[in-house]
């Protein structure tokens, strides 16, 4: 780890640190035959087609697939932005596929954080105010919300940009503000939809590093992407085609020696 990161790690101590992911733990997200269909008859689209998924607490799962394969819809279902047509969905020990819109809103407020490709920051609010917003929505006092927002901005390395409007920030900085916002209410699950889709490779690295650090602290992450390099940073990769899972693979191991081969340094 390099120097700036270690610095911000110091700030992390204030936030509650969760146990890192251990295999075999009770899953945080559990989906059984989860389906989302649009339209009727010939126009029927099976955006998500009887998907089974378990995400353990502290695990980072990447969902990959070509555009239109239903990966975003899956993410929206997991976060309660959309309701499934069929199937069961559990977040922790709570079944959420049947919740009322109000309960879903509460769930999104407390348990889920979203990160979008287009950042979706509020243009007229400063970075700090954007990060405060979910905390205020959750009924925290302005003072608490402000303190939390400051800590989070420091964590994402943007403490000096707190008073900037989004339009004065670079893409990578905006996305980091959005990530800080997603973390404002200490969610159990962060859902990211093509989080680096609008970023160049340097900014992508910034965001990936941030995810990696959050992940190391035990945050559960589901990332939807079509970019292999993002997917490769996850613990597990799920491939989707036409609304269904076609492949699932754990991504652990790999040999360092082989890397040298790749650049012509092998002996």
């Amino acid at each position: 780890m390099n120097a700036p990161m270690n610095q911000s790690d110091g700030e992390l101590e204030r936030a509650p640190v969760r146990e890192p992911y251990r295999a075999g733990e009770e899953p945080l997200v559990r989906a059984r035959r989860l389906s989302k269909r649009y339209g009727k008859g010939d126009g029927l689209v099976r955006a998500v087609d009887e998907v089974d998924l378990e995400v353990a607490a502290g695990e980072a799962v990447a969902v990959m697939g070509p555009s239109g394969c239903g990966k975003s819809t899956l993410l929206h279902l997991l976060g309660g932005l959309d309701r499934p047509s069929d199937g069961e969905l559990w977040l922790g020990d709570r079944r959420i596929d049947q919740l009322s819109e109000r309960k879903l809103a509460e769930m999104r407020r407390h348990d889920v954080g979203f990160v979008f490709q287009a950042f979706h920051l509020m243009d007229e609010l400063t970075a700090q105010e954007n990060v405060e917003l979910p905390a205020l929505l959750a009924g925290r006092s302005p003072r608490q919300a402000r303190r939390r927002a400051r800590a989070l901005l420091e964590e994402v390395g943007l403490a000096d940009r707190a008073r900037h409007l989004p339009c004065a920030l670079s893409g990578g900085q905006r996305q980091r503000v959005a990530i800080a916002r997603a973390l404002a209410n200490e969610p159990r699950l962060v859902l990211a939809d093509e989080p680096t889709g609008n970023l160049d490779s340097t900014a992508t690295l910034e965001v990936l590093r941030l995810f990696e650090r959050l992940h190391a602290r035990g945050l559960t992450l589901v990332i939807v992407t079509h970019d292999e390099r993002i997917a490769a940073t996850a613990d597990r990769l799920v491939s989707m085609r036409d609304g269904a899972f076609v492949d699932e693979m754990p991504l652990v191991g790999g040999t360092r020696g082989r890397l040298a081969d790749l650049v012509g340094l092998g002996g």
């Binding site: 932005l81 819109e101 109000r102 509460e106 999104r108 929505l137």
Partner: peptide
């Protein structure tokens, strides 16, 4: 619309 959707994604209820 957009602000409303965003607020809801952040956990506001439709009533709010």
């Amino acid at each position: 619309r957009h602000a409303m959707a965003l607020d809801r994604a952040l956990g506001s209820s439709p009533e709010q």
